[in-house]
């Protein structure tokens, strides 16, 4: 495994194997993008049904946490990039340190999102259904917003959790990786940043559009 020239029997060379793995993960990310497609389309449909009521829901979100979380994810992608660059120069210890930072930033996102933000929202009765706490003419639209909100953030959070697992796996396996041979680090990094990209789209849909004029 640690032999730099090793490759599986269907490939012509180690470089061939690396290239194939990278294109494989990109195609997988393309499927992931389409996977989130229905969420974006539901946002369009739901908001279009009654924009002002939908925005009433949007304004009940916690902008501070949303902002903090966005910053966390951007920083985390940055940290991962540094880690990946370091292993490219064979600096394994440095890689582990930066990947650990990336992991911690991602974990902080999860903590804020589900430990704080969701908790508050659930206790304030913002989960759609009979006990929904927003009343008046905007009740329906706001429920629609929160149905979208909880679903979308749960799905995104799930991806992030899987990402945390993969990152931990890379860190544990760090011994395996060398300057020439670290395709898994690259592959997981692409997935990690992709989760960030999805959030960069979700963030304005949840927190900003409802507050803009």
């Amino acid at each position: 495994m640690s032999d730099a020239a090793a490759h599986e029997f269907q490939f012509a060379s180690a470089e061939h194997q690396r290239e194939t793995a990278i294109s494989g993960i990109w195609l997988f990310l393309a499927t992931e993008a389409l996977f989130f497609g229905p969420i974006f389309l539901s946002w369009i449909f739901a908001r279009h049904a009654d924009p002002s009521a939908f925005d009433v829901g949007g304004r009940r979100t916690d902008l501070t946490i949303g902002l903090a979380n966005t910053a966390l994810l951007i920083a985390s992608s940055f940290a991962y990039g540094v880690g990946l660059a370091l292993i490219g120069f064979g600096r394994r210890r440095g890689m582990v340190a930066w990947l650990a930072i990336a992991w911690a930033l991602g974990a902080a996102f999860i903590g804020l999102k589900f430990g704080v933000e969701w908790r508050t929202e659930l206790s304030e009765g913002l989960f759609p259904g009979a006990h929904f706490s927003i009343h008046g003419p905007a009740r329906s639209g706001a429920q629609l917003f929160f149905a979208f909100y909880f679903f979308a953030t749960a799905l995104h959070g799930l991806h992030l959790l899987i990402g945390l697992g993969l990152l931990a796996w890379i860190i544990i396996q760090a011994e395996r990786f060398t300057a020439e041979n670290h395709t898994p680090v690259h592959v997981v990094g692409l997935y990690w940043t992709f989760i960030d990209v999805i959030w960069l789209i979700l963030f304005p849909l949840i927190y900003l559009i409802g507050r803009a004029s």
């Binding site: 990310l29 393309a30 497609g37 974006f40």
Partner: peptide
Amino acid sequence: FAAAAVLWLTILL
């Protein structure tokens, strides 16, 4: 692959 993702999302939306 990346272009396909963008194009197909555009079709869907």
